[in-house]
Design a protein around this nucleic acid. Sequence first.
DNA 1: TGGACGTGTAAGACTTAACTTATGTATAAT
DNA 2: ATTATACATAAGTTAAGTCTTACACGTCCA
Lengths: 114, 114
Amino acid sequence: MARPLAHDDVFQAVASPARRTLLDKLSSREQTVHSLAESFDMTLPAVSQQLAILRRAGLVSARRAGRWRVYRLNAEPLREMARWLDNYQRFWTARMKALGEDLKRYEKQDERWR
Amino acid sequence: MARPLAHDDVFQAVASPARRTLLDKLSSREQTVHSLAESFDMTLPAVSQQLAILRRAGLVSARRAGRWRVYRLNAEPLREMARWLDNYQRFWTARMKALGEDLKRYEKQDERWR
DNA sequence: TGGACGTGTAAGACTTAACTTATGTATAAT
DNA sequence: ATTATACATAAGTTAAGTCTTACACGTCCA
């Protein structure tokens, strides 16, 4: 591998709404750059650049098909995100139960959460 | 609400390694800014600014305690991320099964995925 | 073989992000 | 009251990100 698989890149790649939309589109079927750019309010080079970022993050792969380039989703790197999120999943179940007590406690102390 | 809960902010807030570390630290216990800054190679104002971003994304809340400000994790907005990820989870199970066939097919056609 | 098509990439302008230093504000301590 | 502490915020600087335009390259077609 030329570059160590950069953990951060996945989070960062997915931080952009445009790139998330690209991934969403590719999740239904593999597509050419042209096809992806059509359904966007972006020029083709812009889309191509975003795809390059996704490619570096390992989230998509591309193959040549004639003069087209067909992009395909590779969801594997998202597992890392999912794993990270798993550590927090307990909170949005536990929190629900604790919420009532918290409210009572902090209202009494006149402390406000914001 | 002054601002509609910005969906994008959560993804973007979590894109920064520093902010993820802050969340990780807060997941064990609520802490003051000073306490958080100590375990970081960042100045206190820098930490404070990152916390402000997390606050805007709804990922942390703060209360005053004397002259301290105690920050607390609020994992709720991460549910949205988890939901988005759920749409992809099927790939890293399905993909495993399909991988063998894909390899055979594309090797035969001399198409390389990169 | 020349031209159109599909795409990648380079260069530049513009926007946004992230830090540092400096200043302001509220609370606590003396 | 004055000073110190804990933090937020403003201002300024530098780095990153994202677009557009222009151009290069490979592939198909006439």
